[in-house]
Design a protein around this nucleic acid. Structure first.
Length: 631
DNA sequence: TCCGGAATTC
DNA sequence: GAATTCCGGA
């Protein structure tokens, strides 16, 4: 079974395209549909219905007419419109609710509404009357960064609340204004939307656009574990994760409840190598905090710690390299695959991550033609491709693996030789299989099989699943095309899922592991730093990290104390989780269906330690929330 | 009704 | 790239 987080939120490319934002001249159909769904005046035409994310087109002709009007396609009809909708199947944006005519369902689990930063998913405010019943849990989505690239264009922004909030505001506004100034002719809808949104303000613009997920008003925030270099409380960037995940994400409902972003290890959250190297949580331990040196021992410990943390959290090693001081409240999702972890120093989000790639100076469009680093997993193989036969799959797999190997070689020949069973690949669709009325389960499974068969040894597979936790059986991430998206500076980077070796080698071998984890593409020696410097030498990264730690320590002894406390709690937990994970790693694979054991797992209350840590995080978050109230 | 291939348009 | 258009098939 896969949970959105586990499988990694595949942040579809389309979800980040500002030009596709509602109201924009290039509005996409799904945006349009969401707009309609949001407007009460259209509830007779289209409305939420049934399951979460499911909607029914009550008046196909009218919807088509509206769509045609919006696109200046007077000839538009439902047949054509539905064709467009069908294309979304492969993109995993939508799927058909079988048996219910004119009924479709959004794959919100993967729908990262970057273009709908204002959607307040969890809020009861602005909830469409027709909003379908929603599963418990979920997240309260509130005014997250508009786009990955804008939210945090660099690690600097991560530390600048003012900048961040301004950016967010600006983006929010822009998104909305686009709507009104859209060139779209005669858009009655647009008019309505524009007026509406202008009136309420950006942070409310799309609230209620989507069905509510849960009653509580928790915010997605990252708990900044320490003061920033400037001595300012590190702002908790508002990040959105999977606003509409059908999965209960947190057992801590209620205002003030800290909703941990449902980070997916497998997710695109893994920071790209473009950021400065930063140590994993464990590296912040006393041992490393102030006496780090480049001597072999320290290096070893450093890397070991990092590696360990990676394994503990099932996160991509890269995920911890860049935001050592950000403590990400973990969602309390006692899922078998992915034990909740606390005191994680992980990347805020794919967003920030992506941002980091656009350092103020490094506007190099070369590296990222698109400001958006996150891309949706490749669509499931089409019929054609499937028919193409195993040859295709095989080649794809081999391609993928070979690519990985080359990558490994680049970073660390030793590891490459050691054949770490780490596979870097595009994230798979983590769409909640639970929503699966999806039409392509079988094919997904097929793909998964192919992938595993070709790339992983049984042991690897085990871990693969355990770690990625269900890149869902539906792992379309293994599609051939996906396999090719691993580029050091490629936006697709974020799709990668890290597969870790069966056993975390803590010996000398582990030293290399983190390095390998740094995604590097053949031909590209190293990651790119925020400053646009490619592939900073590990040593340099350590050094930077070191300097940063020093600075931060000086700035915030107090915060650190708090942080440590949380960390301590988290560590206990991690240990427990590890055992737990070890015990269940195998059951992940077949848990794809709704109501699977995994789902049950999701419902389980968090362990006591989790709650402790959570309360800590909650306090911290609450404080941060207050500080950022003005944003 | 729904699906999805293919060609075409923007 | 994202539809739009057309169309045969289920």
């Amino acid at each position: 079974m896969k949970t959105p987080a586990d499988t990694g939120f595949a942040f579809p490319e389309w979800a980040y395209k500002p030009e596709s934002s509602p109201g924009s001249r290039q509005i996409q159909l799904w945006h349009f549909i969401l707009e309609l769904l949001r407007k009460e005046e259209y509830h007779d035409v289209i409305a939420w219905q049934g399951d979460y994310g499911e909607f029914v087109i009550k008046d196909p002709d009218e919807v088509a007419r509206l769509w045609g009007a919006r696109k200046c396609k007077p000839q538009m009809n439902y047949d054509k419109l539905s064709r467009a909708l069908r294309y979304y199947y492969n993109k995993r944006i939508l799927h058909k609710t079988k048996g219910k005519r004119f009924t479709y369902k959004f794959n919100f689990s993967k729908l990262v509404l970057v273009n709908y930063p204002f959607i307040d998913v969890g809020s009861s405010r602005g909830v469409p009357q027709s909003a379908p019943p929603v599963p418990t849990g979920g997240t309260h989505f509130r005014f997250p960064p508009s786009t990955p690239s804008e939210v945090l264009s660099s690690s600097e922004e991560l530390r600048s609340p003012g900048i961040f909030s301004n950016v967010a505001r600006r983006m929010a506004r822009g998104s909305v204004s686009d709507c009104s100034d859209g060139t779209s002719t005669n858009s009655e809808l647009e008019e309505a939307v524009g007026a509406d949104e202008r009136g309420v303000g950006p942070d409310r613009a799309f609230r209620g656009l989507l069905p509510p997920r849960q009653p509580h008003d928790s915010l997605f925030r990252f708990y900044a574990g320490g003061p920033n270099p400037a001595g300012l409380p590190r702002p908790a960037p508002r990040v959105h994760t999977e606003p509409l995940s059908p999965f209960p994400v947190s057992p801590l409902p209620g205002p003030g409840g800290l909703l941990a972003p449902t980070l997916s290890p497998a997710l695109s959250m893994t920071p790209t190598p473009h950021l400065p190297y930063t140590p994993s949580p464990s590296l912040s331990s006393p041992m490393m905090s102030s006496h780090f040196s480049f001597n072999p021992e320290d290096m070893k410990h450093y890397l070991q710690a990092h590696t360990q943390s990676v394994y503990n959290y099932h996160l991509s090693p890269r995920a911890f390299l860049h935001y050592p001081n950000i403590v990400i409240p973990q969602p309390h999702r006692p899922t078998p695959e992915k034990p909740p972890a606390h005191h994680l120093h992980g990347p805020p989000l794919p967003l920030s991550h992506s941002l980091s790639q656009h350092p103020g100076s490094g506007e190099d469009g070369l590296q990222h033609p698109s400001p958006f680093k996150f891309k949706l997993q490749p669509p499931p193989l089409g019929r054609k491709q499937r028919e193409a036969g195993s040859s295709l799959t095989a080649s794809a797999s081999s391609s993928s693996s070979s690519q990985f190997t080359r990558s490994a070689q680049v970073t660390n020949p030793v590891l490459a030789a050691g054949a770490p069973k780490i596979k870097v690949e595009p994230i798979s669709d983590i769409e909640s299989e639970e929503e699966v009325e999806v039409t392509d389960i079988s094919e997904d499974e097929e793909m998964n099989q192919d992938e595993d068969g070709d790339i992983f040894t049984p042991t690897d597979r085990h871990h693969h699943h355990m770690i990625n936790n269900s890149r869902q059986a539906n792992g379309n991430g293994s599609s051939p095309s996906a396999a090719h998206s691993n580029h050091c500076d490629d936006p697709d980077d974020d799709e990668e899922v890290f597969k870790t070796p069966a056993t975390p080698p803590l010996g000398s071998g582990s030293l290399a592991f983190p390095l390998i984890s740094l995604k590097t593409e053949p031909g590209q020696a190293a990651p790119i730093s925020p400053g646009g410097t490619r592939c900073i030498p590990l040593k340099l990264r350590f050094k930077r990290r070191w300097s940063e730690d020093q600075k931060m320590e000086a700035d915030g002894e107090r915060d650190e104390a708090e942080d440590k406390k949380v960390r301590a709690d988290g560590e206990e937990e991690v240990e427990g989780n590890r055992k737990e994970a070890a015990g269940r790693g195998g059951e992940v694979e077949n848990g794809g269906g709704r109501g699977g054991g995994v789902i049950l797992g999701l419902m389980l209350p968090p362990p006591p330690t989790q709650r402790r840590a959570s309360s800590e995080l909650q306090r911290a978050t609450a404080q941060l929330s207050l500080e950022n109230t003005g944003c």
